[in-house]
Each structure stands twice: as C-alpha cells, then as structure tokens.
C-alpha cells in the first residue's frame, strides 16, 4: 500500500484496538459486548494485514497463536457457561448486579464478554488470514 495508508494505519491502529477493548469491557453496562468489541479488535489486525501485507500481519499473530487464543476463548466461555448453568445464578447476573461505571460488577458477565472477544477477534482474523493465504498460494 502507499505511504499515506501506512502512516494513517500506524497512527490509528492502537486507537482502534483500544476502542475494541473498551467496547468489550463495558458490554454488561451498556450497548456493546464481546461480539461487537471482538469485531473491532479483529478489524484492527485486518487493518495491519491490508496496509502492510500478510507477512507483517503474520509476524504479529501467527496462525498457531490465533488458533490457540480462539480455542482458549471458547474453553473459557464454555467453562463459565457450564459453571453458571449448574450454579444457576444467571438470573441475578443479568439484572441485579450490574452497576454503572463498575467493570467488575454483574458477576460473570465480563468473563463471557472477554471470552467472546477472544473468539470473535481471533476467529475473524483467522478467516481473513486463511483466505489471504489461499489466494497467495494461487498466485504462486
């Protein structure tokens, strides 16, 4: 890509990433959550991939790391879900315990959000990476 795109990407990439994390972490307090935040996080990585090419992107996050983080998110989500289903404190988690401006409220909801963020963020990036690698193989 051109110098303009590269420079702008370098300037904005951290902001996009942090905004994704912010959306993730306030999911139990207002609009947002793991899915939306994860998409934004994934977009920041895809941004690098588009601006600097897949080699730079791969250096930041290799395929093995992506798979590891994705399945880690899935395992954490499943564990939290099973724990909460068996302990049966979901009803309260949704309504009673959420306090404004408090990240660590609402019981397990932040854990769900973070796990979903890991899954969606790395998952979308993995899809993009896989397709980029496919097309790169085609050209060779």
């Amino acid at each position: 890509m051109t110098l303009i795109v590269k420079t702008i990407t370098r300037l904005t990439i951290g902001i996009i990433f942090i905004y994704g994390i912010y959306i993730t972490l306030q999911g139990h307090l207002g609009p947002g959550g793991g899915f939306a935040g994860g998409v934004i996080v994934a977009l920041s990585f895809i941004h690098i991939l588009l601006a600097f090419g897949k080699d730079v992107g791969m250096r930041k996050l290799t395929q093995k790391k992506v798979l590891f983080l994705m399945s880690l998110g899935a395992v954490v989500f499943l564990a939290a879900a099973v724990f909460n289903f068996t302990m049966r404190h979901n009803q309260e988690a949704y309504t009673l315990h959420a306090e404004k401006f408090r990240i660590f409220s609402s019981l397990f909801m932040p854990i769900y959000d973070i796990a979903v963020c890991f899954m969606i963020g790395t998952g979308l990036y993995a899809i993009f990476l896989a397709l980029a690698l496919f097309t790169a193989e085609n050209k060779e």
């Binding site: 899915f35 899809i127 896989a130 397709l131 496919f134 097309t135 193989e137 085609n138």
Partner: peptide, 20 residues
Amino acid sequence: IVIGLALIMLVVAIAVRIYE
C-alpha cells in the same frame, strides 16, 4: 449472523479451493 458468517466463509474457502 454468526452462523451465516461461518457458513459463508466455509463456502468461500471451498470455492477458492475449487478454483485452484
């Protein structure tokens, strides 16, 4: 939407391989 995303990506990946 999430299910659709997974499906479409799978189908697109298969289509790319078919083109190969």
